[in-house]
């Protein structure tokens, strides 16, 4: 059983999160500002932190910085602002993921589970040579298998080839035409649609929230890329 620290100044939100997480079988510790969270972290055996950014006394960012001095526990930030700058700031100080308010409980649970899997299985995955690893994605070319956060995912052969191509070119933007040419081994003619649909399906399979992908990112009007990170 994993213990999760919930930190938000809104008691109702904390309670709701507590209900969801306990329903999934996680233990919870509830705190209402950054200082309490840091104190709770020292006193309890915790595996994950869910923390709001805007809090009185000690806000989420400050607490993050202090927390990271001693611990590498996964942290998911809750943010109401949804501003790009807030997200980037949060990730830069060491958060592992973020969820914008108002959030979908199902998404919260999925992200919590994903982070916990990665955290607990860290170093446990087999890092053989034929394995391509980016973040939580592991691609075994020989076995034609793909694992996301340790969970096996079923991909069609085309989806697998596209994922492999993108993972081999980590961080590089590939245009639909190029993807088509290299995966289908054919000259692309009006192939953008085909590639786009396949990538859409692939994204739905490997991402928790396909509209806010962590790995497979759409570079609008240019193509696609896979990036390490959240």
């Amino acid at each position: 059983m994993y213990n999760i620290l919930i930190c938000d100044d809104e008691e109702d939100i904390v309670k709701a999160l507590k209900i969801y997480l306990e329903a999934e079988g996680y233990g919870t510790v509830c705190t209402y500002n950054g200082n309490e969270a840091l104190k709770a972290l020292r006193e309890n055996d915790l595996q994950l932190v869910l923390m709001d950014i805007m809090m009185p006394e000690c806000d989420g960012i400050t607490a993050m910085v202090k927390l990271r001095e001693t611990s590498n526990i996964p942290v998911i930030l809750l943010t109401a602002k949804g501003e790009d700058t807030d997200k980037i700031l949060g990730l830069n100080v060491g958060a592992d993921d973020y969820i914008t308010k108002p959030f979908n409980p199902v998404e919260v649970i999925a992200r919590v589970r994903s982070q916990l899997r990665r955290y607990m299985q860290l170093g446990g995955s087999d890092k053989s040579e034929e394995n391509l690893v980016i973040g939580g994605i592991e691609l075994n070319d020989a076995a034609k298998r793909v694992k996301v956060d340790g969970e096996e995912i079923n991909l069609t052969p085309t989806e697998f080839e596209i994922l492999k191509l993108l993972m081999q070119n980590e961080g590089k933007v590939l245009s639909p035409k190029e993807i088509y040419r290299r995966v289908w081994n054919d000259t692309a003619y009006a192939a953008e649609g085909t590639v786009a649909v396949h990538i859409r399906h692939l994204r739905e399979k490997i991402e928790i929230n396909p509209n806010e992908p962590r790995y497979l990112k759409v570079v609008w009007a240019h193509g696609y890329k896979i990036e390490k990170g959240v």
Binding site: S175, P176, E192, G193, V195, A196, V197, I199, R200, V218, W220, A221, H222, G223
Partner: peptide, 11 residues
Amino acid sequence: DITVLLSQTIA
């Protein structure tokens, strides 16, 4: 490239 964006949008 508008055509690329359009295909992405349709997808």
